[in-house]
C-alpha cells in the first residue's frame, strides 16, 4: 500500500469511525435517559432525543461572554471532540477492528492520556470563559480527574501485568488484552479479584463521563452547569458530541478489559461481513449493559457527592478496592 493510499484510507476511516462513535454514543445516551426515566416511573423522552438536542444546539446562536479568552474558549470544544475521536481509534470496537487501520497500534497507557483530553479541554474552556461558576467547576473537574485516575490506572496495570507475567508480548496493548480475557485463565481468587476490578471500573465510568454522583464539576443545582455554564450553540454541541464519542471509547475499553468475547465465535466459518455485523451488534449490547450498570443505575440510585467526598471515594474506597483486586490477581498467579 502506498503512503498516499494509506493516508486517504486513514482519513476515510477516521471520518467513518467518528460518525459511528457519535451515532452510537448518542443512542447510548438516549437509552440511558429512557432507562432512568422508567426507573423513576416516568415515560421519558424518545430514544432519539439526544439527536434532536444536538441538532437544535447546532442551529442556535453561539454566544461568548465578553470576559472570555476568545481563542481558547472557541478552541476547547474542538480539542475535546478531537481527543475523544483519537481515543476511539485505539480502542477495539467489537467486530470493526478487522478493518481497523490502527490495529495493534497504541496501548492502554496512551488511551488513559487520550481519555483525559476531553476533560482537560473542558477545564481549559471553563477557565477561559471567565465565569466564577465555571472556574469553580474547572477546579472541581481537575480534582476529580486526578481522583478517578488512581483506580483506573490500577485496573489497567493489573490486567496488563498478568499478561506480562504469562509471557505475552505487548501486554499493554488493548488488542492483546482483548485476546486474553482475564476470566479464561484465572482461578477462583483471580475471578474474585477481576470481579472487584470490574466493579471499580463500573464506578469509574460515571466519573469519566461526569454523571451523578460524580458530577460536581457540572452540578446543575449548585453551579448551574459549572464549567459548561457559558457555552451555548455549536460549542456546547461539540462538547456533547465529545461526550458521546467518549462514551463509546469507554465502552470499548470496558469490553476489551472485561468482556472481549465475540458473538461470531459461536458459529465457525461465518463470512467476514456477516461476522462483523454480528460482532458489532454484540458490542452495542455489551456497551449498553456496561452503561446501564455503571451510569444509568448508579445515577438513579444516589445523590450527588461533594468534591471532597469524590476524592475520598475514589482514592480511599475505590483505590483500596482496586488494590485488593490486584492483590487477589497477584496471589492467584502464585498458586
Amino acid at each position: 500500500m502506498s503512503t498516499t493510499t494509506w493516508i486517504l484510507l486513514a482519513i476515510a476511516w477516521v471520518i467513518g469511525l467518528s460518525l459511528y462513535g457519535v451515532i452510537l454514543g448518542l443512542i447510548l445516551s438516549g437509552v440511558d435517559r429512557v432507562l432512568v426515566a422508567r426507573m423513576q416511573g416516568r415515560i421519558g423522552p424518545p430514544l432519539v432525543q439526544p439527536f434532536y438536542d444536538v441538532a437544535k444546539l447546532f442551529r442556535k446562536q453561539d454566544c461568548m461572554p465578553s470576559g472570555a479568552t476568545a481563542l481558547v474558549f472557541r478552541f476547547a470544544p474542538v480539542v475535546a471532540l478531537a481527543g475523544a475521536v483519537t481515543a476511539l481509534l485505539f480502542v477495539p470496537l467489537g467486530g470493526l477492528e478487522r478493518a481497523a487501520l490502527f490495529l495493534g497500534r497504541g496501548d492502554g497507557i496512551l488511551l488513559l492520556y487520550l481519555l483525559l483530553l476531553p476533560g482537560l479541554a473542558m477545564v481549559v474552556g471553563g477557565f477561559a470563559s471567565g465565569s466564577p461558576y465555571a472556574s469553580i467547576g474547572a477546579q472541581r473537574e481537575m480534582l476529580s480527574m486526578v481522583s478517578y485516575e488512581l483506580p483506573l490506572a490500577c485496573t489497567i496495570l493489573t490486567l496488563a501485568w498478568r499478561l506480562a507475567r504469562a509471557g505475552v508480548t505487548a501486554p499493554f496493548s488493548l488488542w492483546t488484552l482483548a485476546d486474553h480475557p482475564v476470566w479464561a485463565e484465572a482461578g477462583p481468587l483471580g475471578w474474585a479479584g477481576a470481579a472487584l476490578l470490574l466493579g471499580v471500573m463500573l464506578l469509574v465510568l460515571p466519573g469519566e463521563l461526569g454523571r451523578i454522583p460524580f458530577d460536581a464539576p457540572e452540578a446543575e443545582t449548585e453551579l448551574a452547569g459549572g464549567l459548561l455554564i457559558e457555552y451555548s450553540g455549536r460549542s456546547l454541541a461539540l462538547f456533547e458530541l465529545a461526550q458521546a464519542v467518549k462514551t463509546v471509547a469507554l465502552s470499548g475499553l470496558m469490553c476489551a478489559l472485561f468482556a472481549p468475547w465475540r458473538l461470531s465465535s459461536a458459529w465457525s466459518e461465518l463470512p467476514m461481513p456477516v461476522a462483523t455485523v454480528f460482532d458489532t451488534l454484540g458490542f452495542i449490547v455489551k456497551s449498553g449493559l456496561f452503561m446501564f450498570a455503571g451510569v444509568s443505575l448508579v445515577r438513579a440510585a444516589v445523590a450527588r457527592l461533594r468534591i471532597d467526598d469524590i476524592v475520598r471515594v475514589y482514592w480511599k474506597h475505590l483505590g483500596l478496592a482496586a488494590l485488593a483486586g490486584s492483590l487477589l490477581l497477584i496471589v492467584d498467579t502464585w498458586i
Binding site: M39, Q40, G41, I212, P213, T221, A301, V302, A303
Partner: peptide, 16 residues
C-alpha cells in the same frame, strides 16, 4: 430537597 442533592429518583418517589 432530594433534587437539590442531585437525587432525582428520590424527588420522583416523594412527588408520586
Amino acid at each position: 430537597a432530594a433534587h437539590e442533592l442531585g437525587f432525582d429518583s428520590l424527588f420522583y418517589v416523594a412527588w408520586q
